[in-house]
Structures are given as C-alpha cells and as structure tokens.
C-alpha cells in the first residue's frame, strides 16, 4: 500500500489504542529459526508463535479466544525485538516483559508459571513440572502445558525435558529445542 495509506493506518492504530479499541496488537521479530509472531494486549505479551506455526491460524485463534479487535502494529514491539535479539545472541538471560496469562487457566496456568521460574541454562522434567503445579500424576498434562504454551521462548518451555534424559518434544521442532539449550549452555 502507498505512503498515504500507511500514514492513515498508523494514525488509526494510535487512535484505536488511545480509545481502548486495540485489544490485540501484533508484529514480528527475527530469530535464528525464522520470523516469530508476537501478540500483545494492553496487559502484556499474550502470544508468541514460533516459525513453525501458521500466522493466519494463530491470528484467527486469538480473534476467537480473546477479541477480533486485532491490528497489525509493527512499531509497538521494539522492546520485545531488542530483548529477543539479546537473548539469541547470548547477552540476555531473563526477559523483562509483562505477560498476559489469560490464555492459561487452572493447572495449565500453574504449570506455565512454574516453567517461567526455571532459571536460564537449567532444565526440569515433566514430572517436576506436574508436581510443582500441584498434581504429580498429571505428567501428560504437564506435557500439554509445554507443547501448547502460548508464549514459548519468553515462558521457556524448552527447558522442560524427559526424566530419562531425552529432550522430549517442542512445538518449534526438537532441533530448535536442542539449539536453545545449547545456546544457554545447559547445566542440567
């Protein structure tokens, strides 16, 4: 689209945000694994889609589960991009981004808060996670808390592995999980 339209849409985004009509803003960030889709509500980061995930399907899903008032707002993700870039280059160990947990409830929410607390470079097992979330027999559900984690990377589900030492699965592919753990110099 032309420059006049770009300016109009930028103004529209600003006014929509000012009037409380921008329920979800989305943009992209680069990663060594391909482009990431980032989505934010006024409360914080609500969704990170890995390169393996379908962008349209992700946005339609957010429209259904949160609100269809969704606008592309590439200029609203500078901080996220900076922190992700620092992380991928090994300069950052923790993200300092507000998180909107509204896509997680009950056991899933507790499990994902548990994931968020795993320190950089360390791993926990799916059983650890289940126990920490208050139901040590819910190992399979702990697996879902990881595989369907709406905010991967920032909520580091790649740090959850199998008790037998296997890496387990990853929404972005096992290779990505392996490389992330290598990047962090995994200490087990």
């Amino acid at each position: 689209m032309n420059a006049v339209m770009d300016r109009s849409l930028e103004r529209l985004r600003e006014r929509a945000a000012a009037e409380g009509l921008l329920d979800i803003a989305y943009g992209t960030a680069d990663s060594p694994f391909g482009p990431l889709l980032l989505a934010r509500t006024p409360a914080g980061l609500v969704r990170v889609a890995l390169p393996s995930e379908d962008v349209d399907a992700t946005l339609f899903d957010l429209a259904e589960r949160i609100s269809p008032r969704i606008l592309e707002a590439p200029d609203r993700f500078d901080e996220e991009r900076r922190e992700l870039e620092d992380y991928f280059e090994g300069r950052r160990r923790e993200f300092d981004l507000p998180i909107d947990w509204q896509l997680s409830h009950g056991f899933m929410l507790r499990a994902r808060e548990g994931i968020a607390a795993i320190p950089y470079g360390e791993t926990r097992t799916y059983s650890d996670l289940a126990r920490g979330a208050g139901n040590e027999r819910a190992v399979r559900a702990a697996g879902s808390a990881c595989s369907r984690n709406p905010i991967p990377l920032v909520v580091p589900c790649h740090r959850v592995v199998r008790s037998d030492g296997g890496l387990g699965l990853y929404a972005g592919g096992v290779e990505m999980k392996k490389r992330l753990l290598e990047l962090e110099g995994r200490r087990g």
Binding site: M1, M5, L9, L59, L62, P68, I70, L71, E72
Partner: peptide, 19 residues
C-alpha cells in the same frame, strides 16, 4: 462464520473505503 481479525478487513477493504 467466525469474525476474522480486524486487520483482515483493513487489508482487504481499506483502499476501497478510502476511494
């Protein structure tokens, strides 16, 4: 039919609405 993300409406119809 589910409501698409609003951005889809902009992508598809903004130019025409402006015209």
């Amino acid at each position: 039919a589910e409501l698409p993300p609003f951005q889809k409406l902009i992508d598809e119809h903004a130019a025409e609405v402006m015209a």
